[in-house]
């Protein structure tokens, strides 16, 4: 009986431990999570994943309310950029390159302009109500609004 109980206890403990570890991991993950942001001055409150995708892949040039949308990329080859396309839009870098390759070659679009650093990005977004970008959550300040987590 005793051994049975202790066994049960052990399992319970293990479970708790694992959960606490997961929680800790999740909190850090949450902080690093790539979110889509606009300027506080932008009336847009939230966007769906497909709306974001349309804006970043050049399929749509405006927000749902009709105002012009200007997407801003992080620097080519930066970690944030890679993570945004893979984690948020579910695309590989090669897919994005092929996408823009076709659009540019056929003259149907230009890729978003990119900024040199995340600080620059925050600044650009904050100052331009038309712009939209992505950034790690923990870098958000009061000038930005998250429209897609």
């Amino acid at each position: 009986m005793i051994s049975g109980f202790s066994h049960c206890l052990c399992v319970l403990l293990a479970c708790l431990l694992m959960q606490s570890e997961g929680l800790a991991d999740e909190s850090s993950h949450k902080a690093n999570k790539m979110v889509v942001v606009v300027s506080r001055a932008n009336p847009v409150q939230s966007l769906s994943k497909s709306q974001v995708e349309d804006i970043f892949l050049g399929k749509s040039l405006a927000f749902p309310d009709g105002r012009r949308a200007v997407p801003v990329d992080q620097a080519e080859g930066s970690e944030e950029r890679g993570r945004f396309y893979t984690e948020v839009l579910g695309r590989t870098a090669a897919q994005i390159r092929t996408h823009w390759s076709r659009l540019v070659f056929t003259g149907r679009g230009r890729p978003p302009r990119s900024v040199g650093s995340r600080e620059e990005l925050v600044q650009v977004i904050a100052n331009d109500p038309q712009s939209i970008g992505y950034i790690e959550r923990h870098l958000i300040d009061g000038s930005l609004r998250v429209v897609l987590e």
Binding site: R97, T98, S101, V104, T106
Partner: peptide
């Protein structure tokens, strides 16, 4: 230039 660019059409 990305070589693939020239046949992306």
């Amino acid at each position: 230039a990305d070589a693939e660019y020239f046949v992306s059409g």
